[in-house]
């Protein structure tokens, strides 16, 4: 089995601070769903950003779909096939309306405006968000923003999904709906979540991040 996403021996520290990651490695296979667990500030979000080449590790290699990713051009190719839902939706939404924000990704993939809008409507339908279509993004509630950011990524039909605390700010009903949607997706998923129940129902395997390294969860279920 060849991994879709492989991180090997990643070392990273923010300038002027103690190292965050010190030899973290992981491999995500096709259809696999893995959870990343760790205390606040251990570097989970940092690891996801590194996986997409948004920040560069001091050491270590990243492979996506069997290709090593080192230069920005490599990452540009892989970002078309790997989607990241950021921890803070405010970082992600920047277009005036929901529909425009969701269309941003498909337009980057080279789709025509009409095709992009067709996809937007499809994904809004899938997530039951059609009512939000023409709303202004920064006036959405926290949970609505959360769901829209998920839509902005799903609409690109990525082969791998990286989700950074996707249940943040969701009410129980929407959380259940999100769980059902994610369970039905065929994509490989790397999930960061502090919610044990949510993880238990979505992923097959948990990795624990501590002291900059990834290992099997210390308290196996």
């Amino acid at each position: 089995m060849s991994a879709l996403l492989e991180l090997d021996d990643i070392h990273f520290g923010y300038p002027g601070q103690a190292p965050v990651l010190a030899g973290a490695s992981l491999a995500l296979g096709p259809g696999e769903r893995i959870a990343l667990v760790g205390a606040n500030g251990t570097g989970k979000s940092t690891l996801l950003r590194i996986a997409l080449g948004l920040i560069r590790p001091a050491r270590g290699t990243i492979r996506a779909f069997g290709q090593p990713c080192a230069r920005e051009t490599d990452f540009q190719q892989m970002r078309r096939r790997v989607g990241l839902v950021f921890q803070d939706p405010d970082d992600q939404l920047f277009c005036p309306t929901v529909a425009e924000d969701i269309a941003f990704g498909p337009l980057n993939l080279g789709l025509s405006r009409a095709e992009a809008l067709r996809r937007v409507d499809a994904v809004l339908e899938q997530l039951a968000l059609t009512a939000l279509r023409n709303r202004v993004t920064h006036h959405l509630s926290g949970g609505e923003k959360r769901l829209v950011t998920l839509a902005t990524v799903l609409v690109m039909r990525p082969e791998v999904l990286l989700l950074d605390e996707p249940t943040n700010a969701l009410d129980p009903e929407n959380e259940a709906r999100l769980l059902a949607i994610l369970q039905a997706l065929p994509q490989a998923i790397l999930l960061v979540s502090h919610d044990p129940a949510f993880r238990a129902r979505l992923v097959q395997r948990e990795l624990h991040l501590a002291e900059g390294r990834l290992g099997p969860h210390p308290h196996p279920r």
Binding site: R49, L52, L54, I55, Q76, R79, R80, G83, L84, F86, D88, D91, Q92, F94, F104, G105, L107, N108, L109, T152, V153, M156
Partner: peptide, 19 residues
């Protein structure tokens, strides 16, 4: 910086076009 990262994460590459 974060918004630019989020744009790149969705495959945005600046060019000289309307988009």
């Amino acid at each position: 910086d974060r918004t630019r990262q989020a744009m790149r994460a969705r495959a945005f590459r600046p060019g000289s076009n309307r988009h």
